[in-house]
Design a protein around this nucleic acid. Structure first.
Lengths: 207, 207
DNA sequence: TATCATAGGTGGTCTGACCATTACTCTTAA
DNA sequence: TTAAGAGTAATGGTCAGACCACCTATGATA
């Protein structure tokens, strides 16, 4: 290691060096990293230390290793991370409640945004789909969130959804009429009606 | 490893086993994990593999290791998750509108949560503070978000706030009366009143 | 030219060794 | 009896070397 920088652990230094290497060489997802042995030599550290760093990055979903081939930069979508963290973090009930609560409120936010942003055409189209097609709850609300036309909400909701599903909460599937009524309320552009429809769909007492 | 389960890598199995161990023994943040050598023996794997798993968890902020002492579960109530998620939530979405919109809606969500969760005492205390102390808008809403008692919202809002501030949006500072009226509305537990007060404070036409 | 066996490179894992730091234990002195 | 100290055990940190399993490219052979 060029700069052990006193007390920092070697594997952390490896991670930093790898980041620099990626940045310097403009490496993109799919590109190959140097082999473990080469990194070990170039950085003047043991191969096991290199591996500790690589394994951490792999668990984060930032790289991908294929035996016999090498280590590659990954096009990370984050699902790996979500899965892993959820199993650790979601142990206490408080966190579970937070996730449910947040997901619900953001769904309502997106419904609200729909009232102002979605066109009648879009909503009508959505309604037809909701009444004819077969879909999961996630698929329905994905459309709702998409129509809200806010990329941030889309991203946040997507992550929340993954966490939420990993909770394995027993829950009745809403009826088809619940969904179409919700959209009907959106078409009427009546906030209270929308909230009421959502409450019914999710079987919530308040909100 | 009792069940190598075909192709899964050993260090991933280690991570799983550790999770089970934590769950089974009801280990809390601060508690000590078995030593690397003991884990290596108990799970019948090499110590280096154990270390790969532990290092990954450490980089995620889930555990903490102290040389000479041992490995401990960390209080991951905290920021590690946010940090990691934020990098890919907000990496290229700099759309001003989205950030503003999301921040406002989440602030309203938190206000709403306050109506149900915050005690009269808390709100009164907050009101006194709002009328006497000097504070920034961020500081005020930080308290609001905190009183909402939802860590997820707290994390999301904190990130949004930073991005929002980096946008350098010209905006009038709300008056002190705006803040106290908002809290007054919370104390009355009237949703419409709260929304109206927030609208006034942010000088928004709708929402 | 097409096919296939071989060798070399790569990650995956284990073992054993040594160091630095901390915790523990037991002796010794006040 | 108690407090201080020295010595020992345990722990994480790191390295080196050895295999193995797998993939790829090379090159010889049919």
């Amino acid at each position: 290691m060029s700069k052990p920088n006193s007390d920092s652990k070697v594997y952390v230094e490896i991670v930093k060096q790898l980041r620099l290497l990626i940045e310097k060489n403009h490496l993109k997802p799919g590109d190959k990293l140097p082999s473990e042995r080469e990194l070990s030599e170039r950085l003047n550290v043991g191969r096991s230390s290199v591996r500790e760093g690589l394994r951490a990055l792999e668990l984060l979903g930032l790289i991908e290793t294929r035996r016999g081939e090498g280590t590659f930069i990954r096009d990370f979508e984050g699902h790996q991370l979500v899965q892993l963290l959820s199993t650790f973090i979601l142990q206490d009930d408080k966190a579970k409640k937070d996730i449910m609560e947040t997901k619900y409120l953001i769904e309502i936010d997106c419904l609200w945004l729909n009232m102002y942003k979605a066109t009648d055409n879009e909503l009508t189209e959505l309604k037809v789909w909701a009444e004819t097609a077969t879909y999961t709850d996630d698929e329905f609300f994905l459309k709702v969130v998409q129509y809200a036309k806010n990329h941030l909400f889309l991203r946040i909701w997507t992550i929340l959804k993954d966490y939420y599903n990993s909770l394995q909460i027993a829950q009745e599937t809403p009826k088809k009429t619940d969904y179409s009524q919700l959209i009907e309320a959106l078409l009427n552009r009546r906030e209270s009606e929308v909230r009421e429809a959502y409450r019914t769909l999710r079987k919530l007492s308040n909100i």
